[in-house]
Design a protein around this nucleic acid. Sequence first.
DNA 1: CGTATTCCCTGCACGC
DNA 2: TGCGTGCAGGGAATAC
Length: 271
Amino acid sequence: MPELPEVEVVRRSLERIFQQEPVVEKIIWHRPDLRFPLPLQIFKKWKKVRILSVKRRAKYLLIESDCGSLVCHLGMTGNFRISEMNSPRKPHDHVEFWLASGQVLLFADPRRFGFFLSWPGDWAQVTRELLGFEPLSEEWSGSLLKQGVKGRKAPIKTVLMDQKVVVGIGNIYASEILFRARVRPTRSAMRVSLRECEQIVEITREVLNAAIQQGGSSIRDFKSPGHGEGNFQTSHLVYDRDKKTCVVCATPIRRTVLSGRSTFWCPRCQT
DNA sequence: CGTATTCCCTGCACGC
DNA sequence: TGCGTGCAGGGAATAC
């Protein structure tokens, strides 16, 4: 489900929810085994906790409270929604945040690749060391991407999805970005020129920002509490369009598997 | 070391 | 209709 735009849309939704009602009365969980075990210590401790902020780094959400912080990752199918105390739960509702307003923020995740962590230390510090550049930050640039691809024999698409190089770009947006940049996803990353890296950086920002504006891409099941479904899937030019005609040149779009992930590209537009 | 594959898990679309 | 197969937006652990 969630790449950077979707996670950012969720972040904004959660921010709005907690601005309206910052107090979490308690947390209820229905199973402790998401991708990683839930931080039950924290969950038990969180009674009458005030949420101070919801931040995003890469595809991680950081929920900060006056009683410590939670890191949340949505995995593939993780999602939040607002519900009422007495309204029926669904099969994959794993965590409930009971708000002082009487509403309940539910976290559901059918595939359970998502997780919550409590992070005692400085999360920003950790992510600085382990993760690459934020694509929407001022500091990222074509020359930095060029440094990132230096000596990388792997396909440019794989490197673009490498969270140590640049964060937040997942399988959908990697194909979409490279199509718009006219760079073939299979090309060895080291063979992408500085000029092309600059192009990729610029287009990455355009695509991710547009996707955020559109509320993300809702294929399958992505939804955000308060924002609902996104619309950016209607702007997909190559993703999931195998054998359909390229919107630019009418050549059939091709599907290739790279690092085990479906990849879509136009054999004529992209070199 | 870098790269590719496998696996975690459930649901759904598809073909027979 | 029912069943098997393959595939799905992420990422970590293996296997080369």
